[in-house]
Design a protein around this nucleic acid. Structure first.
Lengths: 342, 342
DNA sequence: ATTCATATCGAAAACGTTTTCGATTTAACG
DNA sequence: CGTTAAATCGAAAACGTTTTCGATATGAAT
């Protein structure tokens, strides 16, 4: 084992624990001579500060928590990567928990993180979350919180988002510009803000271009683990319900890929018969055929940005400075590929 | 804030801290009456034990570390999911770090985890790791360690693996059985055990079926972030070098998908001209065209199994029982799809 | 020699919990 | 009533660190 403590260093040098501690942290009231001596023997004995004791004393763990709906997910794993990268640079480690799109789980995971006393929490909401008391509680307990992607507008904290509405507008507009007259929408669940915003962007694009909005063209997906199957099912239903659809704007790539798969099976040609635009730009979308036109959503940057905001908040809180919450909006862009005519 | 401590409960009830602590943990030497009283006021004051103090006292953090080469990766994210799921059930949280396939990073991350004093470590080696001193050090420090997927045979710890050699043999054999006579192999880097084993399985299948082994048919990929591009490049080179190849066994799906993309671009028909078998069964492989024949590698189960082994080791160490390292081998299976003839 | 400033150190409290062990009370029994 | 056993509690040490604050020593200035 490695139970080398300050005490041991102190004893071997016959000085006090306090001096050893201060020497290691370069306090000004320790002579250069003893500093050198202490650092040398610390190195020699392979001293590593006991994180538990440091945590207890300093009241911080240099650890943050991350709650996301799903780990096996191209977008979210990109976010994770961004967060970890940035956090490491600042000396923070990241505990990752998964809500599996369930509100109950989300609450439980939050409690777990709180009981571990993480220094801050990053999260993207579960689809099932409609009540935000658990988040308000967090904030009233003064635990730094930053939400990203799937946020609640009503919760008072920093956020990192994209302009889902505008991106959806762009996507739908592109379908219109490429000649689509009758455009369906596979939307996400009813609750999450970004699913709502994407729907609104779709609707706005239609009305701005004098295309009547037809609710029967809007299909709902849970966008959970069954995304791919939902894409297939909705594509199938769409064909049964309507024979004049020539374009679909789909809430997320995985669903879009399910739809493409089903259309392919049935013999519907993309983009000749139906054009499709997805959302998120999963890597997969660039290698299926036809390659999928989609909205690129910068997951890695979102993760980095989210940590940056959290870090700032943690720092300001430590220094007892006033906190101002910020909402950072990241750029998206339309990636034109082969699932649409141009 | 929430600075409710044992002391506060003790003061409100006018009893000692020791009794409060013991009451909360159902020690036998506390009367039922006071137990009830303590639990009630603890509930009332919303008492949460201070993890830092508990850690310091008990010398454990109920946290484990996980080091993987890459987060944005279908297989590894499945593993993460399995680990988190299992760990949570046993009350452990998971800190995730990424080595980015670099040996230096891997060492650094290991140090970070050690300095946080995690109760155990799960890891899959970076491609760049040839030296195992850092792992041996871990073991000599008695830190529980379980390796999975990309392991080092020589390191003395528990492991969770698949039989890469046999799986590769099966994959290659399938190519042979479907009529391929001249089979190339896109292998992984030279160091990792599983890359070696897959190569050996390929070779064995050839020799068992009287097909001469031709080293010029073996191409190397780094299998890092450029996997997809490497697949394209190698596919291109392969066609320049040889005009008689009719099958390829490829170290990992992402490279295989790159190869398919390139063949598609050039006009080589799959599987008519060349059959392809990948490895890992990324989700993507089931939706590209042609769908990719591959070896299914159970990431989620591997994660679960790895945590189970780690948990056992942690427990036995706490009870000072002898530790016996185990190697668990998980089943793989050949997924027959459209990139091969049958 | 006295005063003052500066440099250097250490004692000790504190963080909040767990656990040992001794003290006290209560009940039980002859 | 005295003795013993069982039940119930609390004092205190310990985990290892950080930090305040006072103590001492050294040197310079008067």
């Amino acid at each position: 084992m490695n139970p080398v403590t300050l005490k041991q260093i102190a004893e071997t040098l016959d000085i006090s624990i306090a001096t050893v501690s201060k020497a290691l942290k370069d306090y000004p009231d320790v002579s250069k001579k003893t500093k050198l001596l202490v650092k040398e023997t610390a190195e020699l004995l392979n001293y590593k500060p006991n994180a538990f004791a440091v945590n207890l004393r300093t009241k911080e763990s240099k650890t943050i928590g991350l709650i996301i709906p799903e780990v096996v997910h191209h977008f979210f794993s990109s976010v994770i990567k961004g967060i970890i990268a940035r956090a490491e640079k600042k000396g923070y480690l990241v505990i990752i928990l998964q809500s599996s799109e369930s509100y109950e789980m989300e609450k439980k995971q939050l409690d777990l993180l709180l009981s571990k006393r993480v220094d801050g929490i990053l999260m993207s909401l579960a689809n099932g979350t409609a009540n935000f008391k658990h988040l308000d509680d967090l904030i009233s307990q003064e635990v730094p919180l930053v939400m990203f992607d799937k946020i609640a507008k009503i919760v008072n904290c920093s956020k990192v988002i994209i302009n889902d509405r505008m991106a959806a507008y762009t996507a739908t507009k592109y379908l219109i510009d490429s000649g689509c007259k009758r455009i369906a929408h596979f939307r996400g669940p009813l609750l999450p803000q970004n699913s709502i915003d994407r729907f609104l962007g779709y609707k706005k694009a239609l009305s701005d271009n004098n295309i009547p909005y037809d609710p029967s063209l809007v299909y709902i997906c849970e966008c959970g683990e069954r995304s791919f199957e939902e894409g297939k099912e909705n594509a199938h239903k769409l064909l049964e319900d309507h024979n004049d659809v020539d374009g679909i704007f789909i809430n997320t790539d995985l669903v879009a890929i399910g739809a493409i798969t089903e259309f392919h099976r049935i013999g519907v040609k993309i983009p000749e018969d139906i054009s499709i635009v997805g959302f998120s730009n999963w890597f997969m979308s660039s290698v299926i055929s036809p390659t999928l036109t989609t909205i690129d959503q910068p997951g890695y940057e979102m993760g980095k940005e989210a940590f940056k905001l959290l870090y700032k908040e943690i720092k300001r809180r430590k220094e007892n400075l006033p906190i101002k919450f910020k909402t950072v909006e990241l750029e998206t862009k339309l990636i034109k590929r082969a699932s649409t005519r141009n």
